[in-house]
Design a protein around this nucleic acid. Structure first.
Lengths: 124, 124
DNA sequence: GCTTGACTTCAACATATGTTCAACCCTCAG
DNA sequence: CTGAGGGTTGAACATATGTTGAAGTCAAGC
């Protein structure tokens, strides 16, 4: 089994930043907080794999629906390096579920506020 | 037409805080940023109307789905003092729409990321 | 093997969202 | 009218999410 071990982690901070549309400082920030992962060269420079820009783009979407960086890092916790479409799909699914749950909770609590006439009286 | 002008703005900071489940400092923060409105007594103390606690509770829900305090203040911009159920309903509706729009955008962009195989490859 | 451009860390700054504290002021029940 | 309890402002602190800049190191093409 000669599985060729290709250089999977090859992108620099700037490359990832350009690919994902954020500043290099943000790339370092996301690594520090576990949203993305890097290996280091012998000279201590970060190298990222191809999936990194995708993680960042998903992270930005997640922030928009209310997830914190910590929550996003947790979401990605069991995402392997170089994930396949199936693994990405699972993460995306979980993110959508979480977002929909928040909206469902929003609706439910708004309804509560409206019915428990005492506190508030939203729509009826 | 002797419309009795009842004391509509009568609650103190602490009362609103207790009613809405946040700290008094947060109540002052929300007033400062236009999420809630106060009138002042002759001695310069804040007085809020009964709808204030409701605004705050809705604001907390809105934050959970990704709206900033500024966005929430804008949402409440055309909410009158002492709003009726109809006005509350309109605000609640707009908030739900906004939240659902964000989730829809999340789904759409996740789909884009998955289809434009070049960038990412989420689920297929 | 150099030089130049990119990378490193660390600290300071910036904004958003609050909390805490000190010093002072108002309100209202008795 | 007075005093206790709560309100006021402002500054400092705290956390989250980044950006900027300085001082020094690495990488890679010539």
């Amino acid at each position: 089994m000669s599985a060729i071990t290709q250089p999977l982690e090859v992108l620099t901070v700037s490359e990832v930043a350009a690919e994902s549309g954020v500043a290099p400082s943000a790339v370092r920030f996301y690594e520090k907080h576990g949203v993305i992962n890097a290996v280091r060269t012998s000279g201590n420079q970060r190298r990222f794999d191809e999936s990194t820009a995708c993680r960042i783009q998903v992270a930005k979407l997640a922030q928009r629906v209310g997830l914190s960086v910590r929550e996003i890092a947790e979401l990605f916790d069991d995402l392997p390096a170089d994930p396949g479409p199936d693994e990405w799909g699972a993460i995306a699914g979980r993110l959508v579920i979480e977002a929909e749950e928040r909206v469902a909770q929003l609706k439910a609590r708004l309804a509560e506020l409206g019915s428990g006439a005492k506190l508030c009286e939203i729509g009826r």
